[in-house]
Simulated scan of single mutants.
Amino acid sequence: MKFTTVIAIVPDDLEDTAIAVAQHAGATGVTILSGKGIGGQAKKTFFGLIFEGSQSVLLMVVGTHLATPILKALHEILVDGDGSRGLAFSVPIEHLTGIDTRQVARFEEYMRREDT
């Protein structure tokens, strides 16, 4: 089985929704990192204080065939007209270690049942 990493960078207020959407599309596990970003536009200030929005970085190792459905599902909540509230992308994995092969077997069995 080939694997891909799906990475989503979302505002903290969308974290739970993004995780639920990704899991519904097939992601079985998510690693969550905290971060803050600097966009291409000037930072907003309030009485001389700079506002930097907190973000969550979601990392998911999934079967390659699930990357596109997960990205499409995330697109639905991240893109609104001309604006975007985050981004998501995938990176193919060439080598992987540490994954529980029993989990892979259970996942493959689950996918076979879904196809019938």
Rank of each mutant, 00 (worst) to 15 (best):
V57F: 02
Q103N: 04
P92A: 03
T68I: 09
G98L: 04
L78W: 10
F47D: 14
T45S: 14
I50H: 07
L66V: 03
T68Y: 08
V6P: 03
Q103E: 13
D13P: 00
G81W: 03
S56H: 13
R112W: 01
R112Y: 04
L71A: 01
S84L: 14
H75A: 13
R106Y: 00
G26F: 05
K36V: 09
S84E: 15
A67P: 11
F3P: 05
H95Q: 14
A8W: 03
M60K: 02
S84T: 15
L96Y: 02
G40C: 12
G40A: 11
S56Q: 00
A25D: 10
L49G: 02
G81E: 07
I93D: 04
K2C: 11
G63N: 14
I9Q: 02
L78D: 08
I9A: 06
E108M: 03
T45M: 15
M60N: 04
L58K: 07
I70M: 10
F3S: 08
D12A: 13
K2N: 12
M60G: 03
A20T: 06
L66T: 10
F47C: 03
L33T: 03
T4N: 13
D100N: 07
G35M: 00
G63D: 15
I32T: 06
V10C: 04
A105L: 03
V62T: 08
T68A: 15
F51M: 13
